[in-house]
Design a protein around this nucleic acid. Structure first.
Lengths: 322, 322
DNA sequence: CTGAAAGCGCTAACAA
DNA sequence: TTGTTAGCGCTTTCAG
């Protein structure tokens, strides 16, 4: 920049003004500066700018897997862009160590705020960062043991809706196949399912199956649900991946299925899959709203927002009970 | 940092040494500094560090859609991590304006290098950046009109393999349904298909269908391919999304299908989809190799790497011709 | 409207 | 092993 100033024969301050589109520069000088910039291939250094001015205009997004379908991340990016903020994202790969490295790296870069899909149980490393002024919003699940802003789906209501829908179609023996209950959402959904069964006077024998997402495990869960003296006539699944495995495993059996989470696959299946869908746009938009509010006022009270889910009836959930 | 130095009663340089794990610091002093760091919630500022030291250890990835399945991005992240580099990614949303904003933003942050999935035709804005020392590797397609390192799949070989495979199963009337030929890969694949037809003395009448990915357009293409006096007995598709639409549109027709690009959906279909799969790990790994080499030696000759593809036979491509 | 000087937080080079 | 000084590239006072 000092070179540009010399080339253009002006003061440093003037170049800075031109680069930042400060309108209080004479047209003639501005042109001379622009010419010098082009002639010298001058490229402003954002780091120096941030260091001096203190603003970054950048948000970080630490998510489980960048290269997986993640409509919430998409909504986050869009909302951030609409607010004039840049989002830089990185994967945590469901690895606590990596999550920490990623988040700390974003902190050292002084991003204005961070959107985090938290994993694992111990987020103690965040305490000093939060104390030092980090703005952070958790998405999809709360940060274990820490009182920070977060946006989550109404998992319990989703399960209740699915359960009621199946009951309304005559099903009385409904089974659930879900993800590993070490995962927050899986825990919430499984608990809601058990509550539904209890509420309607059912028995849980062979009805609730949770565990890691492995084809073998899921086939076994299905077999258990469909055997015995009182086999299930309907299945609720715990997430999109499990929906696929369940449908694959069921074959042409005339069972009713309601999946949790919408996906591209849902309309590929026969019949199309009825799902409980998250409101991704609302989640992403709310996350950005909360983050901006937190940045603006670090001392504001913590908010935990629960976003409603929606039942999309497409056929598989409307198969009547025999 | 100056506060930490005062609190610990040492010089600035000593704090810097402790923060950077410089082993030439006495254990006693180091401990005092650590204590001061904890007491003051000191957090190092990466921007100042980079500004002074010149190194960032950061790569940028500008891809079409962060939240879409992108095994190449996954491989890029893994290879970068293995090399001790942090990857920060952003979406370009297939928007030339946004691509430019994203890439320029990464340049201003002085990332060590950028992995780019280039879109659009005019990348002139990159010229001054490259002249000023930007290291950049294009992935999936070359940068239009610019001589920069890139890694692409062997699209032509993939089509030839698919075509030969179908011929080996007795098919003589093979149709192609592809993406919009304004897209580089779509253009390469369609051209290779036409060359195959010509080479085997076939006619292109109603055989090659390219255009935007819209269910209606694809249904029409299928109808055209399957009608007339000499209907196709096999279909090659241009990418994973089109494969889905084609299979959806075909229903239970006894046609052979070979898809381009593997996907999660491939094993959901009946029969499982035979595909030409890209070697995502090789593409991502090579991209990082090229980028690191370019960073190490900006004047090295430009390399354009073509990565072989692989045919995965799963059933749909082995349906015999009637 | 423009210019000179100070300093953001840190590390490189050199001394001690 | 530790301390001192200078300066990375920029913006921000505060004078002209």
């Amino acid at each position: 920049m000092v070179d540009v100033a010399r080339e253009a024969g002006v003061a440093l301050r003037t170049v800075s003004r031109v680069v930042n589109n400060d309108s209080t520069v004479g047209a003639e000088l501005a042109e001379r500066v622009q010419a010098a910039i082009a002639a010298l291939d001058y490229r402003p250094d954002e780091r120096a700018r941030q260091l001096r001015s203190g603003v970054t205009g950048t948000l970080g997004a630490a998510v489980r897997q960048l290269s997986h379908v993640n409509p919430v991340l998409r909504a986050v990016e869009q909302a951030a862009r609409a607010a004039g903020l840049m989002v830089l994202a990185a994967s945590t790969e469901d690895d606590e160590q990596l999550e920490r490295r990623v988040v700390e790296s974003m902190c050292r870069r002084r991003f204005d705020g961070i959107i985090l899909e938290p994993i694992g149980a111990d987020h103690g490393y965040l305490l000093p960062e939060l104390a030092a002024g980090l703005s952070l919003v958790a998405v999809d699940r709360p940060v274990a043991g820490l009182d920070v802003d977060c946006v989550i789906s109404d998992n319990a209501a989703g399960i209740r809706t699915a359960y009621a829908h199946l009951r309304a179609h005559g099903h009385r023996r409904i089974a659930y196949v879900g993800d590993d209950e070490r995962i927050f959402t899986a825990r919430e959904r499984a608990a809601a399912f058990r509550a539904c069964v209890a509420e309607h006077g059912g028995t849980l024998d062979g009805a609730a199956h949770t565990g890691p997402i492995e084809p073998g495990r899921i086939r076994a869960a299905l077999a258990a649900a469909l055997s015995g003296p009182d086999p299930a006539t309907a299945i609720i699944t715990g997430n999109a991946t499990i929906s696929v495995e369940v449908v694959r495993g069921l074959g042409p059996a005339p069972l009713a299925v309601v999946g949790f989470d919408d996906s591209e696959l849902a309309t590929l299946l026969r019949p199309d899959l009825t799902v409980v869908a998250q409101d991704d746009r609302a989640i992403g938009g709310t996350a950005i709203d909360l983050l901006r509010a937190r940045i603006a006022d670090p001392s504001r009270p913590v908010r935990r927002v629960t976003v409603p889910v929606e039942l999309l009836t497409r056929g598989s959930g409307e198969v009547p009970a025999r």
